[in-house]
Design a protein around this nucleic acid. Structure first.
Length: 271
DNA sequence: TGCCAGGCTTCAC
DNA sequence: GTGAAGCATGGC
């Protein structure tokens, strides 16, 4: 166990923000599986948090994972004063952070995400982990790691469909095969510019600009990546005349997250 | 029960 | 290059 003070961290908000699918809310915090490990975090109030790991593991793994070395007020500071919508969205989303997640997990998860609701994505991803991942014993019972490319590349298409993937099963198999064979080198493309990174990701069938952008933002922490789904389309249409404001280019991914989270919260209406 | 979901591919035109 | 149809399935 390790307790520490952290400013601007909303665990439940992050769990609900649609960027991760294997973080679950608990009565007083969250639990998650990432980096092949199980972690429980308690929100103790007064900006104090308890992690179910050693201080060393917190410092070497989870501090980075939760992006706790970053002061998010720098992102909020670039919001235009006259932009009431984003001012409100950012205030509502205070404590949201862009996690440093695994690129392969993001690629597969967001391939699965297309034309699915967030609860349905979670269910399908969990079935995938249960079928192909490694079991982990946790205080909360049996859980599973997210499968590796090798584990998924060996799957039969029927097995994938049984996880509720539907027509996306072939897409997942293509992604896993390309990664497993090295045709798509997820480590190598980490060094590419945003545009090239997005292009390379889109060589996988079933991966378009939206899935590639989510992978770039949540798996490679490319803060300029701007995933536009049906919700963001509505926001852009109603609040910004249909196009992303030029002055928000640098941290588009972060600002987009505030908008997405706020728009879906029910505090904003699309007319 | 019907509608919609953090879209993409394919095929007209 | 643009636009529309078709796609599997779970959750509300």
């Amino acid at each position: 166990m390790y307790e520490t003070k952290i400013l601007q961290l909303d665990l439940k908000g992050i769990a609900q923000s649609g960027q991760c699918f294997r973080m679950w809310e608990t009565p007083d915090g969250v639990q998650l599986v990432a980096k092949g490990k199980f972690l429980q975090v308690w929100d103790l109030g007064q900006d104090m948090f308890r992690f179910s790991c050693s201080q060393e593991e917190y410092e070497t793994l989870w501090k980075e994972y939760f992006d706790l070395n970053t002061d998010y007020s720098q992102y909020q500071a670039c919001i235009l004063k006259k932009d009431r919508f984003l001012q409100q969205a950012a205030a509502y989303g205070q404590g949201l952070r862009i996690l440093h997640q695994d690129p392969f997990e993001m690629l597969i998860s967001f391939i699965i995400s297309q034309r699915k609701s967030i609860p349905a994505i979670r269910t399908a991803v969990e079935e995938l982990c249960k079928t192909f991942g490694q079991p982990i014993d946790t205080p909360q019972g049996q859980l599973w790691t997210f499968p590796t490319a090798d584990q998924l590349a060996g799957a039969r298409i029927e097995q994938l469909k049984e996880c509720g993937l539907g027509y996306r099963a072939g897409y997942v198999l293509d992604a896993a095969t390309k990664v497993a064979t090295g045709e798509l080198d997820l480590e190598q493309i980490a060094n590419c510019k945003d545009e090239v990174l997005l292009q390379r990701l889109q060589t996988v069938s079933g991966v378009g600009i939206k899935v590639a952008s989510c992978t770039a933002l949540f798996g490679y922490h490319r803060l300029q990546a701007l995933p536009v789904d049906v919700w963001m389309q509505r926001v852009l249409e109603q609040e910004y005349g249909g196009t992303w404001p030029r002055s928000y280019k640098k941290y588009a991914g972060v600002l987009q997250q505030y908008m997405f989270y706020y728009a879906r919260s029910g505090n904003w209406k699309f007319r």
